[in-house]
Simulated assay, not measured.
Amino acid sequence: MAARATRTEKIDIRLTAAAKQALREAADASHKTVSDFVLESALLKADEVLAERRVIKLGATDWEAFQAALDAPPKPTARLARLVSQKTILD
């Protein structure tokens, strides 16, 4: 962690003695405190999980179908016709 912001929040977790020892050993091997090691590891995993929700990976065929759907005009519906026929604040 390059820039260290003031930490004001806290998370308490329960773990086994073996898990605590493993974290302590891994932190020592990384030349970090257990808190820094756990926080950095958790944030890396959080970024990974959130990236999976933000990135859509499509093959060429699916990508073309996706682009075609985006480029296609909206299907006419009664609600859409009503919406475009109403005056707006700009009229």
Rank of each mutant, 00 (worst) to 15 (best):
L23I: 07
R24C: 03
R24I: 00
E25P: 02
A26L: 04
A29V: 08
S30G: 14
S30F: 08
K32T: 10
T33F: 00
V34Y: 01
S35K: 10
D36T: 03
D36E: 05
F37R: 04
L39A: 13
S41F: 02
S41I: 03
S41E: 08
A42G: 10
A42C: 06
A42H: 02
L43C: 04
L43Q: 08
L44S: 15
A46R: 15
A46F: 15
D47Q: 05
D47E: 13
V49I: 15
V49Y: 12
V49A: 07
L50H: 13
L50C: 14
A51M: 13
A51C: 10
R53P: 03
R53T: 15
R54A: 13
V55M: 11
I56K: 07
I56E: 12
K57E: 12
K57G: 03
G59R: 05
G59A: 11
G59E: 10
A60G: 11
T61W: 04
T61K: 09
D62V: 00
D62E: 06
W63Q: 02
W63G: 00
F66W: 03
F66S: 00
Q67E: 12
Q67M: 06
A68K: 05
A68R: 08
A68N: 07
A69P: 00
A69K: 06
A69S: 01
L70S: 00
D71F: 01
D71N: 07
D71S: 07
D71V: 00
P73M: 04
P74W: 05
P74K: 11
K75E: 13
K75R: 14
K75G: 04
K75Q: 09
T77N: 06
A78H: 14
A78F: 12
A78W: 11
R79N: 08
R79A: 12
L80A: 08
L80T: 06
A81L: 08
R82E: 04
R82Y: 07
R82Q: 03
L83D: 09
L83Y: 10
V84L: 07
S85Q: 15
S85N: 12
Q86M: 12
Q86A: 13
K87T: 06
T88Y: 09
T88R: 15
